[in-house]
Structures are given as structure tokens and as C-alpha cells.
Design a protein around this nucleic acid. Sequence first.
DNA 1: ATCGTTATATTGGAATCCAATATACATCAA
DNA 2: TTGATGTATATTGGATTCCAATATAACGAT
Lengths: 229, 229
Amino acid sequence: MSSRSGEIATILTRAIMGQRLTPGAKLGERELAEALGVSRIVVRQALIRMAEDGLVTIERNRGAFVSRLSLQETLQIYEAMTVIEQGAAALAVTRVGTTAWAAIRRQAELQRQAAHDSNHGLSDHLGIGFHFDLVRLAGNRVLEDMHAQLTRRVTLLHSIYRSEFDQCALADDHLRILDLIEKRQLKKAQDLIAEHNRVIVKGFFLEESEAKRPLPLAEAIAPFLATPA
Amino acid sequence: MSSRSGEIATILTRAIMGQRLTPGAKLGERELAEALGVSRIVVRQALIRMAEDGLVTIERNRGAFVSRLSLQETLQIYEAMTVIEQGAAALAVTRVGTTAWAAIRRQAELQRQAAHDSNHGLSDHLGIGFHFDLVRLAGNRVLEDMHAQLTRRVTLLHSIYRSEFDQCALADDHLRILDLIEKRQLKKAQDLIAEHNRVIVKGFFLEESEAKRPLPLAEAIAPFLATPA
DNA sequence: ATCGTTATATTGGAATCCAATATACATCAA
DNA sequence: TTGATGTATATTGGATTCCAATATAACGAT
């Protein structure tokens, strides 16, 4: 990112994705400017960027807050993600057999291993990566960017709801999706993608997590200040 | 829009969509600030917004320009639009028979009339509206917004390439798409959507239009200064 | 004509200032 | 005590001014 405000936006986005800034948190300009060592203007520009992305909500004369997702918005985001992933699956058919295809398959199997070994952290990480990689297989940057944006927005959910997933089932789904695409059973693959995402959404709303105590702003962003490549 | 920069962004977006600001046009901060009667800061924030949207490209220390679309980007945008419209079609199946459905059907038939009467302007207008309405039928705001963004971006093409479409064929496609959805032949409907969009893309690249002389900035945005509701 | 140098203009950003307004606080009435 | 009202304060949105970095243009020398 060549601009200061872009860097700031990246830092704040990381803080949100890392669940150190949770929905509803106030993002005061002065406070952020001080914590980040930049002027208010740059902070504001960063917040505008993030508002455009949907991660932040700016209220006139009240300031910026980490966005809250309504139930309806959540459902619509997941529905949109499903649409994109289904489309990506259709486009990815032509990629079967490439090295990229082999890679995603390997990852999916690693995830299955991790899930069966109850390595929740790794399994979760690989699971998220799968959806990413599937879209990347489509070879369409525009689609990829839109999907990434939706992914960022649903991260807001993780900060509120604590979900209990059947990691094994999810990992198995991933492998089955790949199988179906390989066998050119696109319709079935797309149906499974839809079902798979429905399960994920349901997982979120089964139980609401205890409210996490919000961190002080400066503390929340601290780990992300050093901007590694 | 509650913020000044949002209003400015809207004005500039309209100017681009109205093809008064064409790809490559320099959007000088000072010049715009003067023409719009606001400070440079607000203009910059507006440009940042639009850059996030893809309509504007900001180059470090060089300024903002109306984005140019590469051939590859164009293809990917249309591919993404196709994916979204196909997904929307799937979701719209449940809307068959509603008043909204009747409305889009009426519009599509109006377009066919206009096309057969060689009323190019009206036909074109209704044709664009069709794709919009189809996505709106899905009842998913997130999907709708993404589609609208892609639509804004492809407008950049209109400013460069002059296309010769077979308006009648396009209008007929629209009606056939509706027919297929009504008959629950989703796969065929989606295939037709894909083919339909492929034809549109091809139409753009058949012949390059004469270069339009760029308007002076102030003149370009003049018609959009009065912001009607 | 080509290359290097200088001059100029523009951007990116900081610091300061101010109006509008939302929130908090205090005061007062029931 | 509780509710309503008015005041104080803090924050935002924006304007203005200033400056460094740098890209572009103008210019001159070879």
C-alpha cells in the first residue's frame, strides 16, 4: 500500500480480523491518531476506506465504529458468498489436474487430518483457506476480491458469536466438493457448497458467546503496528 | 449521503457514468476543489472512496485518474457479473408470480417493443435495467450492491468503445431468460445468461470508437452539481 | 535529437482552527 | 426518587495554511 491511510486501514483491518476490535467498538479519531502516530486526517481517510469495505460504520457527528452485523445482513452475506463460490466452482472445472488443483487437494486433506486429530486451530485455519483457494482457482481476480471482502465482513461474526462446529464434517465436505468437481458433477458440487455454508451459518447462531470485554484501543492495535510484508 | 465527501463522490460518479469524464482523465484535487466549492481534503476523501469502488485509480504523487479497464479486467468483471446474475436467477425462482416478477416481465416486453421500433435509446436503457431488476429479485442487498458496483465499472467501457448491439436479440434473450426461470429450467436460464453476457462483451470489442475529446473538468461535472433527491 | 539539470506544480500529509452537534452533567420540578 | 430541561464539554466534519517529496516540464549542453 503506497498511501499512509491505506497502511492504517490495513492495521485496523488486521485488528478487527484478529478480534481485538469487536463490533460496536468506538474508533475515535484523536485516540487512533495518537496511538498510530499520524494525523487525524489520515485516520479519517482510513476509516472512510474501511467504511466503504463494510467493516466500519460512520455515523455523522458521532464517529466511526466497528460494524455490527444484523441477522439479515449475515444471512445475505453468506448467501452472496455461496453464489460466488458456486460460480467459482463452475469456473474451476477447467483447473482440475493443474498444480494449483493438486495444492488445494493437499490442503483439504491436511485439514481432514487436523480435524480428526482434534487440532481445532489448524483445522479452522485450513478450513477458511479452502474457501479462499477454491475461489482463487477460478482465476478471476474480481471474483476473488469480492469474496475476500465478504470474508472480512463475516469475521465480525466470529467476534460476537462463539460457534461449535463439527470440524470433521466440514473438512469432509471440502473433500467431497473437490471430488464432485473432479467428476464434473457441477450441480451436486454447487448444492453441497450451499448446504455446507448453511451449516456454517447455523453453527454461528446456535449459541451466543459470552460478551468479550473490549480492549482499549491502543492495546488492541498494538500487535499490528509492525507491518510485516 | 450525510458526508460532504460522499456527495462529491456521487457527483463525480455521475459524471463518469454520464461519460463526461472518460478513462484516463486527470482528477486534479485543486481543480476539483475549486469547481466544487469545497476544500482539497474533501475532494481527496471522495477520490479515496471512488478508488475503493474501482472507478478511480490513485497513483502515488501523481494523483487520481478515471480508471482504465484492461481487456483482462473487462472480461473478469463480466464473468463476475455473470456469476452474480446466475446466482440471482437461482434465488429469483421463488419470486415467480409476485408483483415484482410481473413488473420485470412488463419492462422486458417494453424493451422488446422499443428494440423492434428501433428506439435505441429506450431499449438500451431498459436493457440495463433488466439486469439490475433481475438481481434485485433475488432480494439480497449484498448481492445487489456488488452487482451495482460491477455495473458502474463496466460503464467505463462505454466511454471508450462504441458498440453495435443487436438490440432485438438482446431483448429477446431477456424474455427467454424469464421464461426459463418461470419454467424452473434453471440450468438453461443460467447458460443463457452466460451466453447473453458473452455477446455483450464481444459487442464492445468489435470496433473501437473514435477518441472522444475530453471535457474540461469543471464543464464535465457541471450538470451534476445540483444534487436532486 | 538525446541526455542531464533545474524549475515548477501537484500530491501527501501535518498542524491548527472553527462550527455543528452529540453526549454527559448538573440543575430543577413533580 | 425520578423525569425534564438546560448547560458544558468533547468529538466530529471541515477549512485553511504550511511543508516535504516527487513527478513533470522546461531548459541547456553535448
